[in-house]
Amino acid sequence: MEEDIKPDKKINIKGLICPYTFVKAKLAIEDMEVGEALEILLDYEEASRSIPKSMEDHGQKVLKVEKINDTDWVLVIRKEKE
């Protein structure tokens, strides 16, 4: 895991559950350029595991998965491919 990545885009998907968590994250990644990093703020625990796995399955790079408080996680994903 790399630290101190400066994201190019941030999305807040708190309140969303699967699969809409991944739908929102995927649409955000699709709109970005290869090499850019997306920061995702979420509060649905399952998505803190499923989004990184799905992003890796789609060929993207997971840079960070961090629980930042009792309810929230921050993920950082770098776009590696279209």
């Binding site: 699969p19 809409y20 739908v23 649409l27």
Partner: peptide, 24 residues
């Protein structure tokens, strides 16, 4: 891709999460 409405995000979610389809 945020030009999808919330209804469309729900309606097409099983398409959008497929790598071969996606929002595009």
């Amino acid at each position: 891709m945020s030009e999808f409405t919330e209804d469309q995000l729900q309606r097409y979610s099983r398409h959008i999460i497929l790598p071969e389809v996606g929002g595009k």
